[in-house]
């Protein structure tokens, strides 16, 4: 399944220290191939979200190297091109947040076309055409001209996914996309994520949605105390975990 080409995302020895005391990430290594779906599990405070936010530099790694689709940035490197490299990585990665973070002063459609027009310099016509396609793909064509405040949580998150996809990203990062949702709305969002995975998107997801981890993910990684404690296929992790800490954690969430 996985070819031996260069990985889409390569994280090498990444550390993140907040202040001088809080060591959240302790030398993380991770390689993710094109088209692979990876789910990161772990107790809260284990550093999952921080790692995800380090990939697109919403957090600056304190040490280590991040590489996304050939763009390499070393932590702490002071280079004139650095700012451009960060923007470059952000254009290649889409991110969905726990709290959606849609722009409340724009309609669903305006949210989706904002990135392509402002960042990629597309014409409005071009952007709208693709945005409508995406709205159809997430099943929200009829909500095209609604402001986010008139949408349910699940609908908002689907618009947020469409907004990220409008940038034609190479990698999608999901930061607990269903944690803020009412239980009956989780399904519609997971459904969209699943279709995205099946269509070959490279996905890194932090989620407690067990169906997604078990049935959609190619690989599951368990994090604790700022590093991996176990990784493997979903079958192995859920049926035959080696680490007692993994077993403990799974017992809590299953």
């Amino acid at each position: 399944m996985m070819e031996n080409s260069t990985p889409m995302v390569k994280i090498t020895n990444v550390h993140k220290v907040f202040g001088r005391k809080l060591h959240v990430l302790c030398g993380i290594n991770l390689e993710i191939n094109k088209g692979e779906t990876v789910v990161i599990l772990g107790a809260s405070g284990s550093g999952k979200s921080t790692l995800l936010r380090c990939i697109n530099f919403l957090e600056e790694p304190t040490a280590g190297t991040i590489e996304v689709d050939g763009t390499v940035i070393h932590a702490g490197e002071d280079d004139k091109k650095r700012e451009n490299h960060i923007l470059d990585i952000r254009k290649k990665t889409g991110m969905c947040f726990q709290s959606f973070n849609l722009f409340p002063h724009m309609t669903a459609l305006e949210n989706i076309i904002e990135g392509p027009i402002t960042v990629l310099g597309q014409t409005k016509k071009q952007a709208v055409l693709y945005a409508e396609e995406l709205l159809d793909w997430v099943g929200l064509t009829d909500k095209r001209d609604e402001h986010p405040s008139r949408l349910s949580g699940g609908q908002q998150q689907r618009v947020a996914i469409a907004r990220s996809l409008a940038m034609k990203p190479k990698v999608m990062l999901f930061d607990e996309p269903t944690s803020a949702l009412d239980p009956e709305l989780v399904g519609e969002v997971v459904d969209v994520m699943e279709r995205l995975a099946r269509e070959g998107m490279t996905i890194i997801a932090v989620t407690h949605e067990m169906h997604f981890a078990r049935d959609v993910a190619d690989r599951v990684l368990i994090m604790d105390g700022g590093n991996w404690i176990e990784e493997g296929t979903p079958e192995k992790i859920f049926n035959n975990p080696e680490e007692p800490r993994t077993r403990q954690f799974l017992a809590h969430i299953l």
Partner: peptide, 9 residues
């Protein structure tokens, strides 16, 4: 953060 994640400066 959402704006940054889209690649806006």
């Amino acid at each position: 953060e959402a704006a940054k994640a889209l690649g806006m400066n």
